[in-house]
Structures are given as structure tokens and as C-alpha cells.
């Protein structure tokens, strides 16, 4: 009897390990997979939604709330969250060194993708995105919870930030001049061409219109299907190859504040395996910087309005 029970327990354990292993084969998990693995103690689910009250009024059961504006960025200087800040947030969320982290969020998973990028910068392994994000989970009518969580503190330790995953202004300017990288502008064609400086309603903007000279334009939304899931790796490969991004040269992605470009960073780096840096300063830094190479196809002149 005892041996039977042990066998069952072992089998269950293997089943759990097996399913986590299945998930760790790729950088994305499906909503079906997540549904089946909600009770799995190896996974830690983090919601990064940018709109207030979204997490609280119903989140995927077991998810911890990560607030982008304070948890994933430095609230004082413009920077990613510091190592200590992020480590303590992850430990509070019960993340252990061997946990599999699954991120998801509202607004097309942009901010969740930023989370995946920042975790990558600090060397956290086994970080995945829920494909389709919160919108798909809701559209499929899956359950949401409002119950409070009581997770035991985790033991994860972050490494030092890896500069290889993050482009700073000087590197971007160097890359333009030396043509060492392909630079991908993932904003809308109107922002890229300089017809507009920023989409309507955004207060953080720049005093120059246009794009980083030499950058190619592949709007982030071209990487996803209608339901918000990423396109297949083959389709993504073809999409970016058409714009001259084929992995033969290292890549730099940017947008307006660096969150949408995290989404494209994820596609290029995690799904296609290219060498990619995200430039989180993006247009709100570059378009305000003095003396950097800018291409302004539309010729819009900033007049302070």
C-alpha cells in the first residue's frame, strides 16, 4: 500500500515536472497550458497591468500584482528597477531560484514584456510570457480571482545587470555611425516618418520628430495575430527578414518609452533567438537629445505646440 502511494506521489511529481518541462521548451505558454498548471507549485504567475484596478477586480488565480510604474522602473531616476528593489519584489511574490516565472498583463502584454526584459537583464532564467496576455484569457471566458494571496517568501537571487541586453544613447549613436546594428523602430508609421511626434493623448514626448537615422520601421503590432498571440516563428522570421532584420547583425529595438519595443525585443530575442538590445530611452530620450543623427521624412517642425 505504502509503496503504491509512493508510486502515485512519484508519478504525480513526474507529471508536474513533465509539464513544467514542456512549458520551458519555449518562451511562451498558452492559456490552455496555464489553465492546467494553475496549481503547479513550480510556477509563479506575475501580472503586469498598467491600468489601475485591473488586477484587483479579477486576476488569473495565483497571480501576484506587479505595478509597472513603481516596481519595474526606478521611481526616482529614469532607469530600470534596481537589483535590490526587484529582488525584494520577486521574493515577496514567492519566486525561488528554480521557479518558472510566467508574466502576463493588459494592453497587449507590453508591460509584461518589459518585465520579461528587465528580468532577463538581471539574469533570471525560466521567464515566459502568457501568449495573448490578459485579453485572450478573458476572451476565452476563463476564471478570474480576487482572493488575496499568501505566498511564502522566495529565495531568488538576482545577478548584476547585463549591459548586453540594454542599449544606452551613446551605443545607439555609435551603432548609427558604424552601422554595427540593425535598428528597429517599432512605433507607428506616422511616428516613424515624423508626421507626428507622439500619438494623441501621450504627454511624454520629444521636441524633434522622425526616427533614429538608419532605423527600419516594423510596427510592434505586425508581430501579433488578431487575438493578440504572437505569430508563428516562421511568420515572424519572414516579417522581420523583409525589413532586413535576419539575425546576421545584432539588433536594437526602440519605441517611445521602451515598453512596446520590449514586446518586439521578446519576439526577436526569445522567439527567434537573435542578439537584441532594447533601447529603453527610446524616442523620449533620443528625440530630445542634442546633436544626434535624426531622419525626419515628413519634415515636421517642432513649434512647442
Amino acid at each position: 500500500m505504502a509503496s503504491k502511494i509512493r508510486l502515485l506521489v512519484t508519478a504525480a511529481g513526474l507529471a508536474i515536472l513533465g509539464s513544467v518541462a514542456a512549458a520551458s521548451e519555449g518562451p511562451l505558454v498558452t492559456t490552455e497550458w496555464l489553465q492546467e498548471n494553475l496549481e503547479n507549485p513550480e510556477i509563479r504567475l506575475l501580472e503586469v497591468s498598467v491600468n489601475p484596478g485591473v488586477y484587483e477586480r479579477g486576476h488569473i488565480p495565483g497571480a501576484t500584482n506587479i505595478v509597472w510604474h513603481t516596481d519595474l522602473v526606478d521611481p526616482v531616476r529614469r532607469d530600470i528597477a534596481s537589483k535590490d528593489q526587484l529582488q525584494s519584489i520577486l521574493r515577496d511574490a514567492g519566486v525561488n531560484a528554480d521557479s518558472t516565472i510566467i508574466l502576463y498583463g493588459d494592453t497587449n502584454n507590453w508591460f509584461a514584456a518589459w518585465g520579461a526584459w528587465v528580468l532577463d537583464v538581471y539574469g533570471v532564467e525560466n521567464v515566459k510570457l502568457l501568449d495573448g496576455g490578459r485579453a485572450l484569457w478573458e476572451a476565452e471566458g476563463r476564471q478570474l480571482s480576487t482572493s488575496p494571496l499568501a505566498l511564502a517568501a522566495g529565495n531568488i537571487e538576482l545577478g548584476e545587470a547585463d549591459p548586453a541586453l540594454r542599449a544606452k544613447l551613446a551605443e545607439v549613436v555609435d551603432a548609427v555611425e558604424s552601422e554595427s546594428h540593425v535598428i528597429v523602430d517599432i512605433r507607428s508609421p506616422d511616428e516613424y516618418s515624423g508626421k507626428i511626434i507622439a500619438p494623441e493623448g501621450f504627454k511624454e514626448t520629444a521636441i524633434r520628430a522622425g526616427h533614429v537615422s538608419g532605423a527600419v520601421n516594423v510596427p510592434w503590432s505586425q508581430a501579433v495575430q488578431e487575438d493578440g498571440r504572437f505569430k508563428s516563428p516562421e511568420d515572424l522570421k519572414a516579417l522581420y527578414a523583409e525589413a532586413g532584420v535576419d539575425g546576421s547583425k545584432p539588433v536594437i529595438t526602440y519605441c517611445r518609452i521602451g515598453e512596446r519595443s520590449s514586446h518586439t525585443w521578446f519576439a526577436l530575442s526569445k522567439i527567434l533567438g537573435y542578439d537584441v538590445k532594447n533601447y529603453d530611452g527610446s524616442w523620449t530620450e533620443y528625440g530630445n537629445a542634442v546633436g544626434v543623427p535624426v531622419t525626419n521624412l515628413a519634415g515636421t517642425i517642432w513649434t512647442g505646440r
Binding site: 484596478g53 488586477y55 484587483e56 505595478v67 480576487t146 482572493s147 488575496p148
Partner: peptide, 16 residues
């Protein structure tokens, strides 16, 4: 609030 923000001392306000 007890469900949404179990720790009211964390420096955050309940959403909305």
C-alpha cells in the same frame, strides 16, 4: 481592501 491590498502600510493606495 482586505482582499485587494492586504498590506495597507506598503505605501500604496487601493486602486481607484
Amino acid at each position: 481592501f482586505g482582499a485587494w491590498l492586504p498590506d495597507p502600510f506598503a505605501g500604496r493606495l487601493p486602486p481607484d
